[in-house]
Nucleic acid binder design. Structure first.
Length: 477
DNA sequence: TGAAATGTTGGGGCG
DNA sequence: ACGCCCCAACATTTC
């Protein structure tokens, strides 16, 4: 039987991999899994060493897992279209299967490849895999895409409850005796890239482990407490699965199944429902980007393109480097720079600060996040930034001017998060940890920090900037 | 998945 | 006992 090529992209796992399972089924196990490293992934404006590292680690894990099963991972570099055509010829494969990706770049690339394969007499089939409900599966009564999350999520849940979903086993992949060439999987240094030291490791087993921990009700900080703990900056109250969902080392269906399996336990219901809501947000922004691809360049609502951002380069540099003088903002940005990951609540705080306090275009923050985040996803990241900037699907500029001091006091009440990432303030009393500039000289000396010398004084005044932001938004309303 | 400004209420001190 | 003021606590409105 002719083998089927499975083209791996953002589905770097064996379990519950829709296209891989289908390829294995249709070819009686004769599957050629291939990953093609496209140089454009390494150089685009959203390129991120952290994501490349996570991807390479996940590929190495996948290669080991396939070898243990008596199969192989083919790794190639180059233009995906050319490599797939070559590989089909070399292997006599009659079909290429892959799981769909929905960014405008991916859609354009994949449809061209589908066409080229067809012209070469090779069947191309793509599958829904990365989301629970796809682009056109959740529509309003009139057949339009939802642009508001709440009704979208209601429909998303209804359809889930009505139709359920399937989790596939890892397929049998038999060894195929071929002389097909395969390059060694490089490490980050081979690609001339460098990355953060402390990071979330890649690989399917790592992802399974995180999911298992998160849904293990005997452990501290499991999904039961998610609704409340997820906002607490110093706690491990979130799933930390974002990068695994981004690169597909964890299947969204497997994650959903694990969550639903513990939902009936005492007290777990609320946490589970809240967390499932996050999976719905994920699908929501995927379909927003698909139906409204202009959001990658401009505001979801056109009138907000007229906002007159100040875009001060020096303020932007201070934000990037975590030296704004607002402890919770600086802690969050240093967490991002050190770990290639940031707590979700912190993302909202720094995004509000960049746009509403520094009056800097949300696209600058969007790009910086994409370049740093191990989980950076064009749809979710764009949705999050437009939400924070108030230019997005539910535009409410006044609603979302966060006060960095009160956000810190609410979500890091004892200052543990700030102290972890801003060591200059390690000895600062809790009373002042979110407003250290209010300490007098004596208190600063006692805390071992001189504001303006060891740690910056606030680079802007929140009260002033808040008013200026309101004026800026007022002009375009 | 806010925050600040403004309004209302009610208790306690005080003359 | 009463009116008055102060102020905290809470509620509502506004940005």
């Amino acid at each position: 039987m002719a083998p089927i090529i499975h083209w791996l992209r953002r589905d770097l796992r064996l379990h519950d991999n829709t296209a891989l399972a289908a390829a294995s089924h249709d070819s009686d196990g004769a599957v050629l899994p291939v990953f093609i490293l496209d140089e454009r992934l390494l150089t685009g404006r959203f390129a991120s060493p952290a994501r490349v590292r996570f991807m390479l680690e996940s590929l190495q894990a996948l290669e080991r897992a396939l070898r243990e099963r008596g199969s192989t991972l083919l790794f190639r570099r180059g233009d995906p279209q050319q490599e797939l055509l070559n590989l089909a010829k070399e292997s006599s494969a009659t079909a290429v299967y892959w799981n769909r990706d929905y960014s405008p770049f991916a859609i354009k690339r994949d449809s061209a490849i589908k066409q080229a394969l067809g012209e070469a007499g090779v069947t191309a089939r793509s599958f829904k895999d990365a989301v629970i409900w796809e682009l056109d599966e959740i529509l309003t009564k009139e057949g339009n895409p939802y642009t508001v999350y709440t009704p979208y999520a209601r429909r998303w849940r209804q359809r889930l409850d009505a139709e359920g979903f399937q989790v596939h086993e890892a397929p049998d992949c038999q060894s195929i005796d071929t002389k097909l060439s395969s390059a060694a999987i490089p490490d980050l240094a081979d690609l001339g890239m460098d990355t953060a030291q402390q990071v979330i490791p890649g690989g399917e087993a790592e992802g399974q482990c995180l999911l298992q921990e998160f849904t293990d009700l005997r452990r501290n900080h499991n999904i039961t407490a998610y609704k409340t703990d997820r906002d607490m900056l110093a706690l491990p109250g979130t799933s930390r699965l974002s990068a695994h969902l981004r690169l597909g080392t964890v299947s969204p269906r497997a994650a959903l199944r694990a969550a639903l399996d513990v939902a009936q336990h005492n007290d777990a219901e609320q946490g589970v429902q809240t967390w499932i809501g996050e999976l719905a947000w994920r699908d929501f922004y995927v379909q927003i980007l698909y139906h409204f691809p202009h959001v990658l360049r401009s505001a979801f609502r056109a009138q907000y393109d007229a906002l007159e951002w100040e875009n001060d380069e020096n303020l932007f540099a201070a934000w990037c480097e975590g030296r704004t003088g607002y402890p919770v903002v600086d802690a969050a940005m240093r967490q991002l720079n050190q770990e290639a990951w940031m707590h979700n609540r912190a993302r909202m705080i720094v995004a509000s600060f960049l746009t509403k306090d520094l009056l800097i275009d949300w696209r600058w923050g969007e790009r910086y996040f994409m370049q740093r985040l191990v989980d950076g996803d064009p749809a979710a990241n764009n949705g999050g930034w437009q939400w924070a900037a108030g230019t997005g699907t539910d535009a409410q500029p006044y609603f979302r001017i966060f006060n960095p001091t009160s956000q810190g006091q609410k979500f890091d009440p004892d200052g543990a998060y700030v102290r972890r990432y801003v060591p200059e303030l390690a000895q600062t009393p809790t009373k002042y940890i979110h407003e250290p500039w209010k300490m007098n000289k004596e208190q600063q000396r006692a805390g071992g920090v001189q504001i303006g010398h060891d740690y910056p004084a606030p680079i802007v005044d929140h009260t002033t900037q808040r008013q200026r932001a309101l004026d800026m938004y007022g002009k375009v309303k």
